[in-house]
Amino acid sequence: MQRSRLTYFILATATIIIGLLSRHFKNIPLFIGDILWATMVYFIMCFLFINKPVKFAITAGLLFCFAIEFSQLYKAPWINELRHTLFGRLVLGEGFLWSDLLCYVVGIGVGVMIERLINKRSLF
């Protein structure tokens, strides 16, 4: 089946909406948002690199997520001020957590499974 940018756009948008809604329900653990964030990153990588293999999107997604998480160890005043904005909180996060790295691996895995269900394509 042919991969479609529209499909990945819809998947990324739906994931963003679900992720934002998950923050409004107190019974949903916060780590679910981290998983959904990584899933969204995976769909964006698939959207941007539509002709690349799945391994590329997985690697690019994990590298991006991990880079953002490790950037939270950098505490310069200018970036801390940016992190206190809505954009900064949503994209850059506020504090480094090792557990977030696991959430990102799970989130990318969820994205791969959803993609495989939709596209019925081989993982590699």
Rank of each mutant, 00 (worst) to 15 (best):
G19L: 10
F64K: 05
G88S: 08
T13D: 02
V105H: 00
I50F: 07
I50E: 09
I50P: 04
Y104P: 03
L21I: 10
M1D: 00
F31Q: 11
S71Y: 11
L63G: 10
I79E: 14
I114E: 11
L73T: 01
I35G: 01
A60H: 04
W98K: 10
M45R: 04
D100H: 01
P77D: 02
I28N: 01
F96G: 13
G109E: 09
P77Q: 01
R3D: 07
I114C: 03
G93Q: 09
M113N: 01
F47G: 12
C46F: 00
A38G: 06
S99G: 03
T59S: 01
L90Q: 09
L21T: 07
I108K: 02
G33Q: 08
R5Q: 09
L11E: 06
N119D: 01
R89Q: 14
L123W: 00
W78P: 14
I118Q: 08
V106F: 09
R3M: 08
D100P: 04
L62Q: 02
S122E: 00
A57I: 00
L101C: 15
L21N: 04
I18P: 14
I35N: 04
A76M: 03
E81Q: 15
L36I: 13
L92E: 06
L30C: 09
G95D: 12
I108T: 11
L21P: 13
L62I: 13
L36A: 02
M1Y: 09
R3F: 13
F25V: 09
L82N: 07
I16K: 03
L82G: 13
I50S: 13
F9L: 15
W98R: 06
G93M: 08
H24F: 04
G109N: 11
Y74T: 10
L92I: 05
T59K: 07
L101I: 15
R121A: 05
V110D: 11
L101N: 15
N80M: 09
M113R: 02
F66C: 04
R23K: 07
A60F: 01
A76N: 12
L63K: 03
